[in-house]
């Protein structure tokens, strides 16, 4: 009474699943970029800012790291409407994931600020750089270079995390997998295909990130 794998019921749905993978990638990229900008801004405040602003940033980080992403998105999706703010599923999930990633990326980049070369900062200060210029031209490349591995890991985490969007009516890869699954009941076939798509997606992303890192920041990553 073993289970026979029959992929023929599922193969017709592969293009539909790939469309979901595209949405997954899009959601991961948007939330990573916004989260990274939030994180850079926050880490700048933690490093250069006045005490009350630092406290506010620490409050934000503490809140978002210590509550589940699911709860955060649930709040944005289902609680804000009672206050008159009705966001589309995609927007709600993108905002939730960005705010969540922002907290983690604040923590990651704070470490980057702490490992800054004092000498480069002195040179920038002495040459009259403003704080935003210093962050953008000196701190950011340093962070991108020294923190490239954790930053790209965070991106891969974002790719995986997008699966939560299925709960909030976003038809990304996991959501579409559930849809195909309920149609065909071929769970093992559907989810094995989806697993392969995720693996290919993340490997492709890390390859792209390695190439990008080498090109932008001279991070000498070994590529396959």
């Amino acid at each position: 009474m073993g289970y026979d794998l029959i992929y023929s019921q599922v193969t017709g749905h592969v293009p539909y699943l790939l469309g979901g993978a595209l949405l997954t990638l899009q959601l991961a990229t948007i939330s990573f970029l916004v989260g990274w900008a939030i994180g850079l801004f926050n880490a700048s405040i933690l490093h250069f800012g006045p005490h009350p602003a630092r406290l506010a940033v620490q409050g934000y980080v503490t809140f978002f790291i210590n509550t589940p992403l699911l709860v955060q998105i649930f709040f944005i999706f289902f609680v804000l409407p009672d206050a008159g703010i009705l966001l589309s599923p995609y927007t709600a999930v993108a905002i939730g994931m960005s705010l969540n990633a922002g907290a983690y990326l604040t923590e990651i980049q704070r470490a980057g600020f702490q490992s800054l070369r004092r000498e480069e900062m002195d040179a920038a200060t002495a040459m009259g750089f403003s704080v935003p210029q210093m962050v953008w031209y000196v701190v950011m490349p340093h962070i991108a270079k020294t923190l490239y591995p954790p930053l790209s890991n965070q991106f891969i985490i974002q790719v995986m995390t997008t699966s939560i969007a299925a709960i909030f009516a976003v038809e990304e890869l996991t959501g579409r997998a559930y849809n195909v699954n309920s149609l065909t009941f071929r769970s093992m076939e559907v989810f094995s295909i989806v697993a392969v798509i995720y693996v290919v997606l993340t490997l492709a992303c890390s390859l792209a990130l390695a190439v990008l890192g080498r090109w932008l920041f001279r991070v000498k990553a070994r590529i396959v």
């Binding site: 891969i156 989810f191 094995s192 693996v199 890390s206 890192g213 990553a221």
Partner: peptide, 25 residues
């Protein structure tokens, strides 16, 4: 410096898990 090896290991683990799921002995 993307941790390619860790990723590969992760991928291999995922593949192994999928294989285990697909061949329920």
């Amino acid at each position: 410096m993307t941790d390619r090896r860790a990723l590969m290991t992760g991928g291999a683990a995922a593949a192994a898990a999928a294989a285990a799921l697909l061949t329920p002995k």
